[in-house]
C-alpha cells in the first residue's frame, strides 16, 4: 500500500487540490506537534538538517515570508530569502532565469510568491525541486488555508461540516479561493459577502452562497473570515470610498451581535483597522488573528517536513 507520505515526496504544493483530506488531517496532526516545539525553550528539531529552502518573493510579505523562514529554521534547514528589490530581478532578469539559477544551486524547496497566477506552477515545471506556492495573484494561497483550518480545528475540535462566511475583497483574494476549496473539502457551507464589484464573475461556480449583507453573512456561522481591501490590485474604482465600504462591510461590534456567541473571527492579515474590521473586534475575545500567525509557523513546518523530509525514490 502506498502511504500518504510516500506519495507526497518530491511533489509540490501549489493549491489545496494537490492534497487529499487524509493528507490535510495528517498535516494538522503534525502541525500540532510542531506548535509544541515552538513553545519550548529550544525551539528547534534536527528533522531537516542539511536541507536548503529558498524563499523567492516577488511581492511584499511580512507573515508568510517570516513564517516560512522561521519554520525552515526550526526544522534545522538552511533558509535563504530572495526579495526582488535586492536581487537581479531589478536588473531585468526574467522569472524563468531567476528560478533556473536558484535551482542550479540545488535547493530542496523553493517557496514562490508572485503577483501572477500560475507563476509557482511554472516554477514547479522547471525547478527540479519541490515548489510551494506562497501566494500567486488572486489564485491560491494553500498554506494560509491550511493554517486557517488548524486554527478552526483547535477551537472547534473539528473541521467537518462547518458554516463559514468570507467577507470582503473576494475578487482579489487568493486566501478566499484556497479557503473555499479547503473548507468545502470537509463539507462546509460557505457564504461569501462583498459588494457586487468585489466578487469574481461566476463566484457561485465555487459552490458558495452569495450575499451583500454582512449581518446576514455572519448570522449563524461557526467561522467568519474577514479580508482586506486590496487597493494595490485595483486599477479602477470598484467602490465609492473606503469610508463608504466600511459603512456597509466593516465587522463592527454592532454587526457581531448578529453572530453566534461562539463565532470565530479570523483575518489573514494585514488588517486595516476601521476598514474591514473594527479595532475592538480585531482585539476582542472572538478574534483569532494572532493565533493564525502562530499556527502559520507550525503548519509551514508540517508542509516543509512533508515535502522535504525524505529523498525522492
Amino acid at each position: 500500500m502506498e502511504t500518504v507520505e510516500k506519495k507526497f515526496r518530491g511533489r509540490h504544493l501549489l493549491q489545496i487540490a494537490d492534497l487529499t483530506a487524509d493528507e490535510i488531517m495528517g498535516l494538522l496532526n503534525t502541525a500540532y506537534k510542531f506548535k509544541d516545539v515552538s513553545e519550548r525553550e529550544i525551539k528547534k528539531v534536527p528533522t531537516l538538517r542539511g536541507k536548503t529552502i529558498v524563499n523567492l518573493f516577488y511581492e511584499p510579505s511580512t507573515r508568510t515570508r517570516t513564517s516560512f523562514e522561521i519554520a525552515g529554521k526550526r526544522l534545522s534547514a538552511d533558509v535563504i530569502n530572495i526579495s526582488t528589490s535586492s536581487s537581479s530581478v531589478s536588473k531585468g532578469e526574467t522569472f524563468k532565469d531567476t528560478v533556473l539559477n536558484i535551482a542550479a544551486m540545488k535547493p530542496d524547496a523553493i517557496v514562490v510568491r508572485h503577483g501572477s497566477p500560475g507563476a509557482p506552477a511554472y516554477a514547479a515545471r522547471i525547478a527540479g525541486c519541490s515548489v510551494i506556492n506562497g501566494g500567486d495573484g488572486a489564485n491560491a494561497h494553500p498554506t494560509q488555508a491550511l493554517l486557517d483550518l488548524m486554527t478552526i480545528h483547535e477551537k472547534k475540535g473539528t473541521v467537518e461540516n462547518l458554516k463559514a462566511a468570507i467577507v470582503g475583497d473576494i475578487l482579489h483574494s487568493r486566501v478566499a479561493r484556497s479557503n473555499i476549496n479547503a473548507l468545502k473539502m470537509f463539507g462546509a457551507e460557505v457564504t461569501v459577502c462583498a459588494p457586487p464589484t468585489l466578487l469574481p464573475h461566476g463566484v457561485k461556480a465555487l459552490g458558495v452562497k452569495v450575499t451583500h449583507d454582512i449581518r446576514e453573512a455572519v448570522a449563524d456561522k461557526d467561522v467568519v473570515m474577514m479580508l482586506r481591501i486590496q487597493t494595490e490590485r485595483m486599477q479602477q474604482g470598484l467602490f465609492p470610498s473606503l469610508r463608504e465600504y466600511s459603512e456597509h462591510f466593516c465587522l463592527s461590534a454592532k454587526v457581531l451581535k448578529s453572530a453566534r456567541p461562539d463565532v470565530l473571527i479570523m483575518h489573514p492579515g494585514p488588517i486595516n483597522r476601521g476598514v474591514e474590521i473594527a479595532s475592538d473586534v480585531a482585539d476582542g475575545p472572538y478574534s483569532l488573528i494572532l493565533s493564525q500567525v502562530t499556527h502559520g509557523v507550525a503548519m509551514r513546518m508540517a508542509v516543509l517536513y512533508l515535502l522535504c523530509g525524505g529523498a525522492e525514490s
Binding site: E5, K6, G26, N29, K33, P46, T47, G310
Partner: peptide, 19 residues
C-alpha cells in the same frame, strides 16, 4: 519522530505522537 536518523530513507511520518 522528528529525531530519527532514517527520515531520508523512510520519508516523513505524519502520525507523530505528542511529547
Amino acid at each position: 519522530t522528528f529525531y530519527r536518523d532514517d527520515i531520508q530513507s523512510k520519508g516523513p511520518d505524519l502520525n507523530a505522537g505528542r511529547t
